[in-house]
Simulated assay, not measured.
Amino acid sequence: MIRNVYSKECPCRGLLDMVASRWTALVIGDLEDGPRRFSELKKRLEGISQKMLTQTLRTLERDGLVTRTVYPSVPLRVEYELTELGRSVTEPLAALRSWAQRNYETVAEARETFDKAEPVGAEPATAR
């Protein structure tokens, strides 16, 4: 069945929202090199809160993109790793991260220009 993500009823929209989130893109990117412990991810993903990292990892695990392996040791050791499905999204997310890095200056200039411009009106113009 072909889905139409432009339709408000399309169930794929939730998946698109999840994959397109900043923290999902960064967690998946960091797991590309192999399994990581929670503390490693937290240290490497500067600015992410413990709560947000936990939520992101749970979502990725629930959606089948990440596996969580608990090793019975003292202290308990837990590692997160991409599944085959998770690895299948690494290329498009890497392209998106690369695009953001390459185009940040251009976007920042566009924002500055826009913010300095006089407001034209509250409503966008419509074609007649």
Rank of each mutant, 00 (worst) to 15 (best):
L15I: 14
L96V: 07
S88C: 05
N4Y: 00
L93D: 04
C12Q: 10
V74H: 05
A122M: 12
E9K: 14
P35L: 08
S21L: 11
V107K: 09
E79A: 01
L76V: 09
A25D: 00
T69I: 04
E84G: 13
L65D: 03
P35W: 06
M18W: 01
E105P: 06
S88W: 03
L82K: 11
M52K: 10
E84P: 09
T113S: 03
L31P: 12
A122D: 13
G86E: 10
E118H: 14
P119F: 03
T106E: 14
R22E: 10
S21M: 08
N103V: 10
V78A: 00
L16K: 05
R68Q: 14
G29T: 02
R3S: 08
L82D: 13
K51L: 00
V66L: 03
F38C: 04
R97A: 01
Y104D: 12
W23Q: 07
E40P: 04
T59Q: 15
E123I: 06
M18Q: 08
L15R: 04
S49K: 02
T67Q: 02
S73V: 14
P11E: 01
A125D: 13
G47I: 01
R128G: 13
I48V: 07
A94E: 08
K51M: 01
L96A: 13
V70G: 04
K42D: 06
M18V: 15
P75W: 01
A25P: 02
L31C: 06
S49G: 02
A100V: 03
V120P: 02
W23E: 02
I2H: 11
A20W: 07
G86C: 01
L65C: 00
D17L: 11
V120A: 11
L41F: 06
A117C: 00
A110S: 04
L41T: 12
I48T: 05
S21Y: 03
T54V: 10
E84A: 13
L57G: 07
R87T: 06
R37G: 15
R77F: 11
V74S: 14
I28N: 12
P119E: 04
R3Y: 13
I48C: 05
E79R: 01
I28L: 10
F38S: 07
P92F: 06
R68M: 12
L53G: 09
E81P: 09
K8N: 10
L76G: 00
T90N: 02
E118P: 15
L82W: 10
P124E: 07
Q50C: 07
R37F: 10
C12H: 14
I28A: 07
Q101D: 15
L93R: 02
A95V: 03
L85D: 12
R62M: 02
R58G: 15
E105W: 02
K43H: 13
